[in-house]
């Protein structure tokens, strides 16, 4: 019996590691860091790497939701707008008597989650294609934001944000720490709970999932709500790091989050992948951006290099193997 058990779940082998996309992405990141560290003095310094991680933390947080949604077979094009809502919203809802700013942050996180939930409602019950639903939501939010905040930057000063943006705990920036903690939770939920398994089920075959007793609608709404929450959290972190929010601050994070998810080996078709790949994916993304900046090329060349590198990395590893 024990023998049979053994053969039915093959033991871990080094070869499995080589097929593991998360591991491969980590390997690429390390390789790039080592090469760049030798080629460019200062790149490998602790301060610079810490700075890269801080930048990656924001993308990584947004990409938690994006990873969840993509694994569940959808896509969320509203994360950029939600990041902005959060970064602009916290200063706006600052109340008297809420000295630490905790209350304002909580209100905004609830709002961000609700926006995601509305996305889920549209996708699950109105059966609107996720791309359209979230795109329309992004357009809607953009309008609301300009109405409320206008074109000016809004500063926020409260202790919580200041701490998030500047504090170091044993040398590690608070933002990176926040990312690490939330990532741990995100990975645990994805891989060690039935909810996580439902996401994989939904992305691979929604019909079979429904017939197996999975509540597809509830799961869909939950996953978009998580995406809203993650984007909201990222917005708070940006606000802390920047000190001010303005309309459009979240825009770059939409494409970055999708790129991080895909670079991390999660199939855009849904049903497979892991946040464990998205983490190095986000780091890889900021590393590429940093290297391109280092090259000291014009904006045009930087953009071309960035696009080409993403395409190249995809070609190397991200091919959608023949799925039928």
């Amino acid at each position: 019996m024990n023998q049979a058990n053994h053969s039915r779940f093959p033991a871990w082998s080094p070869r499995a590691l080589l097929r593991n996309r998360a591991f491969l992405t980590v390997a690429i990141v390390i390789l790039v860091w080592v090469v760049a560290g030798f080629a460019k003095p200062g790149f490998g310094s602790y301060g610079h790497l810490r700075y890269l991680l801080e930048l990656a933390a924001v993308i990584g947080l947004v990409a938690i939701g994006q990873t969840y949604v993509v694994i569940a077979g959808g896509i969320d094009l509203s994360v950029g707008a939600i990041v902005t809502v959060s970064a602009v919203g916290v200063p706006l809802v600052a109340l008297s008597g809420d000295g630490s700013g905790t209350f304002a942050v909580l209100i905004i996180l609830v709002a961000a989650t609700s926006i995601g939930f509305l996305n889920g409602l549209g996708v699950a019950y109105l059966r609107i294609h996720p791309m359209i639903m979230t795109l329309a939501m992004a357009t809607f939010l953009q309008g609301v934001l300009i109405l409320i905040a206008g074109g000016t930057a809004i500063s926020a000063q409260n202790p919580l944000l200041a701490w998030l943006g500047n504090a170091r705990i044993i040398g590690i920036p608070a933002g990176v720490l926040l990312w690490a903690v939330v990532s741990g939770a995100a990975l645990a939920v994805l891989h060690a709970t039935p909810f996580g398994a439902r996401l994989y089920a939904l992305g691979a075959n929604p019909l079979a999932s429904a017939l197996s007793g999975i509540n597809v609608q509830a799961t869909t709404m939950a996953v978009y709500a998580v995406s809203g929450l993650a984007a909201g959290l990222a917005g708070v972190l940006i606000l802390g790091m920047n000190g001010q929010g303005y309309v459009g601050i979240g825009d770059p994070y939409l494409l970055a989050s999708i790129a991080a998810v895909v670079l991390g080996g999660t199939s855009i078709l849904g049903g497979s992948g892991s946040y464990a790949g998205t983490i190095p994916g986000a780091i890889l993304l900021v590393t590429i951006t940093a290297l391109i900046t280092v090259v000291n090329a014009s904006a045009g060349w930087r953009s071309i290099l960035f696009g080409s590198l993403i395409l190249l990395l995809l070609l190397l590893s991200g091919r959608e193997s023949q799925r039928r």
Partner: peptide, 21 residues
């Protein structure tokens, strides 16, 4: 056989870069 959404996403950077050049 790469997903269109990703290819065109990467292409948008390259094409936008060309325009800037």
């Amino acid at each position: 056989r790469l997903p269109a959404i990703i290819v065109t996403l990467a292409a948008s950077f390259i094409i936008g870069g060309l325009a800037l050049l």
